[in-house]
Amino acid sequence: MDAYALWRNLPFPRSGSSRELILAHSDLAEADEYVTTVIRFVERGIFKPAPVDVLAMLQELMQRIDRLGETVSSPDQAVARSQHAYAALLDLVYRQFLELGPSHS
């Protein structure tokens, strides 16, 4: 629940100025939307995973962001770190949701 509470209260990261970070930001928003299935579970006990492999999506996204962090400008490096941290938090929240599974709904 700590990761869930943090995610729900954390502002969504900025997009940065490089094209690659803007695309990563868009993909992060899509993943965030899939992770909102966790809200139904927490608030109403409805266990219904997203129709895509969210964890694979987040792992690929974090790898992309890591590679970008080495090539973007200094201000965008902070954005890349923020996006990566947010994706890692989404990964943790969704992983815990899947581990709890329908037995807790």
Rank of each mutant, 00 (worst) to 15 (best):
M1T: 10
D2R: 11
A3N: 03
Y4H: 13
A5S: 14
A5R: 15
L6E: 13
W7R: 12
W7V: 10
R8N: 04
N9C: 00
N9Q: 06
L10Q: 09
F12P: 03
F12H: 02
F12N: 08
P13H: 01
P13S: 03
R14N: 13
G16Q: 11
S17Q: 04
S17K: 09
I22Y: 00
L23N: 04
L23P: 03
L23Y: 10
A24Y: 09
H25W: 05
S26A: 12
S26I: 06
S26F: 07
D27G: 01
A29D: 03
A29M: 11
A31T: 03
D32F: 03
E33N: 15
Y34N: 11
V35N: 10
T36S: 13
T37E: 05
V38T: 03
V38I: 03
V38Y: 01
I39V: 15
I39P: 09
I39A: 14
R40Y: 07
G45V: 01
G45N: 11
I46T: 10
K48Y: 10
P49M: 00
A50H: 07
P51Q: 11
P51G: 13
V52K: 06
V54G: 00
L55T: 07
A56V: 00
A56R: 06
M57T: 12
M57S: 09
L58N: 07
E60H: 12
E60Q: 14
L61H: 04
M62Q: 13
R64W: 08
I65L: 09
I65A: 07
I65H: 02
D66M: 11
R67F: 08
R67L: 15
L68T: 11
E70Y: 11
E70K: 15
S73M: 05
D76S: 09
D76T: 08
Q77F: 06
Q77M: 13
Q77N: 04
Q77D: 10
A78Y: 03
A78L: 12
A78Q: 12
A78F: 05
V79E: 05
A80G: 05
A80I: 07
R81H: 04
S82C: 01
S82F: 02
H84I: 04
H84D: 02
H84L: 04
A85E: 07
Y86W: 02
A88T: 04
L90G: 00
L90H: 01
V93Y: 01
Y94H: 11
R95K: 11
F97G: 01
L98C: 03
L98R: 09
E99C: 07
L100E: 13
G101V: 10
G101S: 02
G101K: 05
S103W: 15
H104V: 13
H104R: 14
